[in-house]
Amino acid sequence: MNDRISPTICSNSSDASRVRVKKLVVSGMLTALTVALSGFSIPVGASKCFPIQHLANVLAGVFLGPVYGVSMAFSASLIRNLMGTGSLLAFPGSMAGAFLGACLFQKTRKLLPAYLGEVIGTGLIGGLLCYPVAALLMGKDVAVFFFVAPFFMSTLAGTILAAVLLAMLRRLGLFSYFERLINE
């Protein structure tokens, strides 16, 4: 009796597993990069502007999709908070931007919507979501739109860095190579 399973029977499930593992590894690498560079922040008002998080959000959104992008943003925010280099405000800002940027890229397959999704998701939606976090969990008395401007500046800086990096990858022919490498 033959105990081996035919490769043709398993090819779809093993291919899907391989892609999931690749995406998990890349997500972990982006999380590690984000945490390792968490010392690079710019204080603006009551929040810390952290452009590396937004750079990673765009890369995760473009190469990994919304589930892995949001998971990476959450993991990086959690680790940064545990290390004392982040605040509770990192969660709503980074996760909203990662989600919207990834969804828009997935829908259009264009980079500009991904950039706009990160900026609007973090700068506007994330900035507004920080109000209840600051008021209820941190005990801060701030206006509803208090975090929008600093989050917008932070995400704009990180998104510009991501746009420059992705433009260089495209020119070098590495953008499509990375997409194939992760998704095959």
Rank of each mutant, 00 (worst) to 15 (best):
M72L: 14
L59Y: 08
T85I: 06
T85E: 09
Q53N: 15
A73D: 05
A73G: 04
A56R: 01
V67T: 12
L55N: 08
P66N: 07
Y68Q: 06
S75V: 03
L64R: 02
L59T: 07
V58Q: 11
G65C: 08
V62Y: 13
Y68C: 00
V62R: 12
A60M: 08
S75T: 15
G84K: 11
M72Q: 15
S71C: 14
I79M: 13
L55F: 15
A56S: 14
F63L: 14
I52V: 15
A76D: 02
H54W: 06
L64A: 05
F63R: 02
P51L: 07
L55W: 15
G69R: 03
S77F: 03
S71Q: 06
S75C: 13
F63W: 06
G61F: 13
N57H: 02
V70N: 10
A60T: 09
Q53D: 03
S77D: 01
V62T: 14
V62P: 04
A60Y: 03
V70Y: 07
Q53H: 13
F74Q: 04
Q53G: 11
L78G: 04
M72E: 12
F74R: 07
Y68T: 00
A56I: 05
N57C: 11
I52M: 15
I52C: 07
G65H: 12
H54S: 15
L78I: 11
M83P: 00
V58I: 14
L64Q: 02
L78N: 02
N81F: 01
L82I: 10
G61W: 08
H54V: 09
P51D: 00
A56N: 03
R80C: 08
V62A: 12
V70D: 11
L78P: 05
G84Q: 12
N57A: 06
P51G: 05
P66F: 11
Q53E: 07
V70I: 13
V70G: 07
S71F: 10
G84P: 12
S75F: 10
G84W: 07
V58E: 13
I52F: 12
N81I: 00
G65P: 08
